[in-house]
Write a protein that binds this DNA or RNA. Structure first.
Length: 494
RNA sequence: GCAGCGUUCGUCUAGGGGUUAGGACACCGCUCUUUCACAGCGGUAACACGGGUUCAAUUCCCGUACGCUGUACCA
């Protein structure tokens, strides 16, 4: 039987990085096995719906390179793929369970439920729906039940968990599991508003959509026995389950917004490459069994197996993600980098944006930044005619920056000023394009005034770029071109 | 509280009855160098604890501790 997996997000907000990892593993597993990857929207809770959330999540997934074979945005033979469009199905299956005795109506009010839990708490018992003490009805033919239903008394449908039997299931990540029936609560299947809960809708849809493998976060492990019970009640064959370890905050709690940016769009906005984010996240909770760490999406498809998924949660390491992003930055084709950089440059209003020039700049500067877009800031002096004024430089860009005070000190430094004039006198287009000639001129100018090469080059960089740091100065000069260099030197000397 | 799950360097992890317990990020040092980086080289750093099984346990078993998740008419 061919593999069919699903990623089933709830449209309650932006796509979480943990959800991206879950979607990724589903995708990798499906593609590794030549199977089908389905997107299904689980919007059974109408109170938590967020407008536009589905679209945002699909877009984030698309950005990450995860493509689905079936889903609300592409269709398929098992649709609709949005649960709110399938509500009629769940009611029908809920009724079926009541009729077969696997579920029952319960008419308790929330006050009664609260009181029950309070009693249990006081008695030190685990809170669980107590069928014997509550006002509920087990049989549909029952007179009182019929009367209550006739007057539209608010009610839910609950799963009738067999107390005496243990529920067994196998998890492909964690092995064989067994949970005693007495530990499982009589889960609400259909809410009093007539809408199904996740548990019912999820099982019904996984069955109807012929899902073979459920790959989801570890937070679902405790409710899996309920799902198994539902499959058994319906007489359906359950899929196999894999519960993924959680992505954690530095304090090892479930990764959440309180501790930093955790939405995929946050990472996107910061400038991470989707390939880097996907690559990094693939390694949180799984490993390929080798020391290699850089994998493209299709390479991940080739090597991904559920057997190599870990059991323990993984703390998300933003620093390692940064490193990985840098690896991608260094590996990419400068032409592509230039194309991606272009919007930043036009936004900043820069004039030197000829693609091959930008590609050269990107190739030169990418060694020293984490994000591509940093090049636009870090190398601002390359993209304009006028040298950016010290005061105009952003704080981010000015970390290793000289100050106007430094420039003043330079002007007071006779040895440097004389050397700079000597350098300026012989500097021309040829020098700007000849590494050895450039170095010889710089050296000669410096030494004639008793300066070491470094004591000349560093200030020269400051004069030309208004920065203390940057790429190799010769290559910088080459990219700047003789004309701009001369203008800047003259500007400083005048 | 109850239930389930988990526990190898700070972090991600490899490994697995006999290993100098390997790699990566981070950190530190050195080299390179006109700066900052990059790179190269080197370094600090881990099997939670206690019992058992065994000639031998970090690895298997049982406890304990700690952590996490769940315990909703949320998903």
């Amino acid at each position: 039987m061919s593999v069919r997996v699903r990623f089933a997000p709830s449209p309650t907000g932006y796509l979480h990085i943990g959800s991206l990892r879950t979607a990724l593993y589903n995708y990798l597993y499906a593609k590794h096995n030549g199977g089908t990857c389905i997107l299904r929207v689980e919007d059974t809770d109408r109170t938590r719906l967020v407008e536009g959330a589905i679209e945002e999540q699909i877009e984030s997934l698309r950005w990450a390179g995860i493509v689905f074979d079936e889903g609300p945005h592409i269709g398929g033979d098992f649709g609709p793929y949005i649960q709110s469009e399938r509500f009629h199905l769940y009611n029908q299956y809920g009724m079926q369970l009541v009729e077969s005795g696997h579920a029952y109506y319960a008419f308790d009010t929330s006050e009664e439920l609260d009181a029950m839990r309070a009693r249990q708490q006081a008695a030190g018992i685990a809170p669980k729906y107590d069928r014997s003490s509550m006002r509920n009805q087990y049989t549909i033919g029952d007179d009182e039940t019929a009367n209550l239903l006739a007057v539209n008394a608010p009610h839910v449908i609950r799963l009738k968990v067999p107390l005496q039997t243990d529920v067994h299931f196998h998890d492909d990540v964690r092995g064989d599991m067994v949970v005693g029936g007495r530990e499982i609560d009589d889960q609400i299947l259909v809410k009093s508003d007539g809408f199904p809960t996740y548990h019912l809708a999820n099982v019904v849809d996984d069955h109807l959509m012929e899902i073979t493998h459920v790959i989801r976060g570890e937070e679902w492990l405790p409710s899996t026995p309920k799902h198994i019970l539902l499959y058994e009640a319906f007489g359906w064959k359950p899929p196999s389950f894999s519960h993924l370890p959680l992505l954690l905050n530095a304090d090892r709690s479930k990764m959440s917004k309180r501790h930093g940016d955790v939405m995929v769009q946050d990472f996107r906005a910061k400038g991470y490459f989707p390939q880097a984010l996907v690559n990094y996240v693939s390694l949180c909770g799984w490993n390929p069994g080798s020391d290699r760490e850089i994998y493209s999406l299709s390479e991940l498809v080739d090597v991904f197996t559920l057997e190599r998924v870990n059991k323990a949660g993984a703390v998300f390491d933003y620093k390692k993600l940064d490193w990985m992003n840098g690896e991608y930055l260094k590996a990419m084709d400068p032409k592509d980098l230039a194309a991606e950089l272009m919007p930043e440059l036009s936004y900043a209003g820069y004039t030197y944006t000829e693609p091959s020039f930008v590609a050269n700049v990107a190739e030169l500067l990418r060694e020293r930044v984490t994000f591509l877009k940093d090049i636009a800031v870090f190398g601002d002096y390359l993209f304009t005619d006028g040298i950016p004024a010290l005061s105009e430089l952003t704080e981010e860009a000015s970390k290793p920056l000289g100050s106007s005070e430094t420039l003043g000190l330079l002007r007071a430094n006779d040895a440097f000023m004389t050397a700079l004039r000597a350098f300026r006198a012989d500097f021309n287009d040829d020098v700007a394009n000849d590494h050895d000639g450039f170095k010889a001129l710089a050296q000669a100018s410096a030494e004639a005034n008793g300066l070491k090469l470094g004591a000349f080059m560093k200030p020269l960089r400051l004069v030309l770029t208004h920065r203390d740091v940057g790429a190799d100065l010769f290559r910088t000069v080459q990219l700047l071109g003789a004309k701009r260099c001369i203008t800047r030197i003259d500007g400083f000397l005048s």
